[in-house]
Design a protein around this nucleic acid. Structure first.
Length: 769
DNA sequence: ATTGCTAGGTTTTTT
DNA sequence: ACCTAGCAAT
């Protein structure tokens, strides 16, 4: 929209300076439903922050009437900072946070209606699983037929869809023994959660949504309070979140959602791409704006990633373009094995650093956290500073969780999961027998574990360990009484002292004990920082933050290479990005290839690669290894990812791939003899060609050839070695015991995890890379 | 009740 | 290779 032709006083507004016409429209279209399809690197965050600023400055909306939802704390923090920078301190009143954080705040304000007390606990996945185990025991389901985790997943799924255990639709959908039992577990679990005054992650969305849905007055109040609602990463919302948004905007319809269907990578967590694909149908008078100009990446990077994702059928379809130059070609490195790959990553990044790129502008992305270990070793060997994002989290360490369970018990005396943990931390001569006694009492009376413990003590039925139990309960009560008005970190220090956690670690001869002690020190430091800086400096506020914040927000401090999974990469950008492990079985992950043959999970894997690739501004490196060790087992051959062949050859340079290892040469493997060994694309035009069909690179690879690798090799090279993990369509996963014969006709003896030993022909199983 | 050992599972991704 | 739950030994 040329401003000269359509003079608009608002065009000159400083907030619109430097925005392109589409971005301006997205900022200034404040009324009604708005869908912004924002391609990777199209200035999405800029649009959102300017839009908030626009609402406040131009349209005179009070900051507290604006609600902005994000998925990660990182995104929320960045956004808040930028809005504050633009409109000043008043921006602090904008409700800006993750869905879960907003959910907590809503629940706190509607605690009564939600049947909760003010100090309710937020259970993490671990607490959830433990609670389910306890429930399973009560229902006599704790044989090994189903694992607590399976039920946990089931419950999450229900909550993502707003289905309570008595939901008629849920009851109708029972198809299997598992479903039936899962619903029973779900119902008992919910009852248990109520006694403990606890909610899980799913509840943080589901509960406020249900309260609003069932309470028209409240719904009106909340919807009138937030006149403008914005959502980032909308492609990752689930059904419950969308419903919450509808309720919150029911009075005015001012809902602005921003997202990119090509970056939808959380369907396994209940996200519905349909929310963004079907948004205009859901809100008939939706304005749709596409942001297709990419400001981030070079031409080669953009073209390569676009080519990959365009193989997906289920998408809106955008055409990203850029005015920046083509830049450097992508580089694909073919490594011998994972260690070789990791060394190459470190060497490459080291060279770039020497050439002047700051390590803080470099990132390495992988599919699974397990891949990080080798990379770490190489980074250390090359003395490259790095920071691991995600993975083993500080707040998930045993000693930290122990301390946190005490703290939780102080805020919420009914916290059963916390009690179950604290009673053994440190060991105090109370064993499983006593805990089981308490659990039975709790079950019988429908009360929490700590209540049941008091109950038993009162009745003198606490068994042999009664006195120890009494001491423990009194200790808790004493601590709780003494903390009124104290700083969170002061309370923390008292707890570490009084609980005996500190003393136990000091006395521990284990060489790791010192580290654990230091972790507890770090916990106190975090509490002190929280007490000094947070909006809600209370202990409760601290615990809430711990529950909702993964400590991945230390990005960019110090000159360190960031290493993370492709999932946590979303929303970030770096000058240099390296994507490793581009192999069948890893990306796409074996589980995504096997399950549900409709290709949806495969498309999600492709989007995952797309997200990773589009993080790069200037240089993009890809790598895969010819063989890889998994589970510490033997090195196993790995095929290059099918996605690699979808990158146009003229945008990428292949390097490495020449064997230095004797064993490889001797094995005479096909990859050795194939085009892979060249440093450039081979004559037939494809550097990812299977040797079985040389010279026939299909522009659109036939799906069958792509999905079903054919192995025609002899024994030494056969993928069907004893010990190899395989998957069968109906028998599930298993391990090869014996293999006889060649290729896909080989006769295998396989021990399946669930159905036992079977003999079958190789073509019916899939090798798990 | 606690410690220490072994077997078996684990590695998809996270708020 | 690593972690854990479950068992035996103390």
């Amino acid at each position: 929209m040329q401003s000269s032709l359509f003079p608009d006083p608002a065009t000159d507004h400083p907030l619109l300076q430097g925005l392109n016409p589409e971005q301006r429209r997205a900022v200034t279209t404040t009324r009604g439903p708005l869908l912004v399809l924002a391609g990777a690197g199209s200035g999405k965050t800029r649009v959102i922050t300017h839009r908030i600023a626009w609402l406040i400055e131009q349209e005179r909306v009070s900051p507290w009437q604006i609600l902005a939802m994000t998925f990660t704390n990182k995104a929320a923090g960045e956004m808040k900072e930028r809005v504050i920078h633009t409109v000043g301190e008043q921006a602090k009143d904008v409700w800006l946070g993750t869905f879960h954080k907003i959910g907590v705040r809503m629940l706190q304000q509607m605690a009564t209606q939600a049947g909760l007390r003010a100090g309710f606990s937020i259970y993490d996945t671990d607490d959830q699983v433990r609670t389910i185990s306890r429930v399973m025991k009560a229902l006599n389901l704790s044989d090994a037929t189903y694992k607590p985790k399976q039920f946990a997943q089931f419950i999450d799924k229900c909550k993502n869809r707003l289905q309570l255990p008595d939901d008629p639709k849920l009851l109708d959908s029972v198809e299997s023994d598992f479903d039936k039992k899962a619903i029973a577990v779900y119902a008992a679990y919910e009852a248990e959660m109520r006694t403990a005054d606890a909610v899980d992650f799913g509840d943080l969305i589901m509960r406020p949504t249900i309260v609003l849905a069932q309470n028209p007055g409240l719904r009106q109040n909340w919807s009138n309070r937030f006149r403008y609602v914005l959502v980032d990463e909308f492609q990752d919302t689930n059904a419950a979140q969308f419903e919450l948004l509808k309720l919150l905007t029911s009075e005015h319809g001012n809902l602005c959602v921003v997202g990119d269907d090509d970056q939808s990578i959380y369907s396994w967590r209940g996200a519905e791409v349909g929310n963004i694909l079907g948004f205009p149908e859901m809100f008939p008078n939706t304005t749709t704006i596409k942001l297709e100009r990419n400001y981030r990446s070079t031409g080669h990077i953009l073209a390569a990633s676009t080519a990959v994702v365009s193989h997906n059928r289920n998408r809106h379809g955008k055409v990203l373009w850029t005015e920046s130059g083509e830049g450097e070609l992508l580089v694909l490195h073919v490594a011998q094995n994972e260690r070789d790959e990791a060394d190459w990553v470190a060497r490459t990044l080291d060279q770039l650093r020497t050439a002047g790129t700051s390590a803080s502008q470099m990132a390495v992305f992988y599919r699974t956290n397990a891949q990080s270990r080798v990379l770490e070793e190489s980074m250390r060997r090359f003395r490259l500073p790095y920071i691991l994002i995600g993975g083993q989290r500080f707040y998930e360490r045993a000693e930290v969780k122990d301390a946190l369970s005490w703290l939780r018990l102080l805020v919420n005396p009914q916290d059963s999961a916390g009690w179950e943990r604290a009673i053994h931390a440190p060991r105090r001569g109370i064993g499983d027998a006593t805990v089981e006694l308490v659990a039975q009492r709790a079950r019988a009376r429908g009360i929490s574990l700590p209540e049941a413990a008091d109950d038993l003590l009162l009745l003198n039925q606490a068994g042999r360990s009664a006195e120890k139990l009494r001491t423990f309960q009194n200790l808790l009560r004493g601590l709780r009484d003494g903390i009124e008005g104290l700083r969170a970190d002061t309370v923390g220090a008292q707890v570490l002292q009084a609980s005996g956690l500190k003393a136990a670690l000091q006395a521990d001869k284990d060489p790791d004990a010192q580290d654990r002690l230091e972790n507890l020190g770090a916990l106190l430091a975090a509490m002190a920082e929280h007490a000094d800086t947070a909006d809600d400096p209370s202990l409760r506020g601290f615990l809430e933050q711990v529950a909702l914040v993964a400590d991945t927000d230390k990005l960019g401090d110090g000159a360190k290479v960031s290493m993370m999974t492709m999932h946590s990469a979303k929303g970030l950008e770096f000058d240099v990005a390296v994507v490793v492990g581009l192999e069948e079985g890893i990306l796409p992950h074996a589980n995504s290839v096997a399950e549900s043959g409709d290709g949806r999970s495969l498309e999600e894997e492709r989007r995952l690669l797309y997200v990773a690739m589009t993080r790069a501004r200037k240089r993009l490196f890809l790598a895969h290894a010819r063989s890889r060790r998994r589970f510490g087992g033997p090195e196993m051959q790995a095929d290059p990812s099918r996605f690699l062949s979808q990158i146009p050859e003229e945008r990428i340079r292949v390097e490495g791939g020449r064997s230095s290892s004797q064993s490889w040469t001797q094995a005479g493997s096909w990859s050795q003899a194939s085009s892979w060994s060249g440093s450039t694309a081979s004559r037939n035009g494809s550097w990812s060609q299977r040797p079985q069909s040389p010279g026939s690179f299909p522009a659109r690879p036939r799906p069958s050839a792509q999905e079903e690798p054919v192995f025609q090799r002899g024994d030494p090279d056969s993928p069907y070695q004893p010990g190899t993990r395989v998957r069968h369509a109906s028998f599930g996963g298993g391990t090869i015991l014996e293999a006889d014969g060649y290729g896909s006709d080989a006769r295998l003896t396989v021990r399946f995890d669930t159905v036992g030993v079977k003999k079958l022909v190789a073509r019916f199983v899939q090798v798990q890379a």
